[in-house]
Amino acid sequence: MNLLYFAWIRVKMGVSGEHIDPPKNIKDIKGLIDWIKQRNQISNEAFSDISNIRIAVNQEYVDIDHPVQAGDEIAFFPPVTGG
């Protein structure tokens, strides 16, 4: 799985993305976020308020119960402010 971070989430994480190989029992976004958070303090803080985080899987917006699988491109970012 490839994770991508944008805007302040990228700044907090200190990287624009990472390749991860989570345990097989991670089935959806919610489980994935819980797994990301427990890895270290930086991740735990960056994902402390998920109401401020939007999620895309393979470049489409999804909700927190969306399934995830190997090979997915999963992006986390704040509410958008273009235009």
Binding site: A7, P78, P79, V80, T81, G82, G83
Partner: peptide, 30 residues
């Protein structure tokens, strides 16, 4: 198109002020 774009297109704005950079927050009115 512009109303949709403002709330869905994945862009983020960082404003540079004399205090440093700050991320623009999304607005309910959009």
């Amino acid at each position: 198109l512009i109303d949709w774009l403002k709330t869905k297109a994945p862009f983020w704005k960082l404003e540079e002020t004399s205090e440093g950079g700050r991320w623009v927050e999304a607005k309910i009115k959009d």
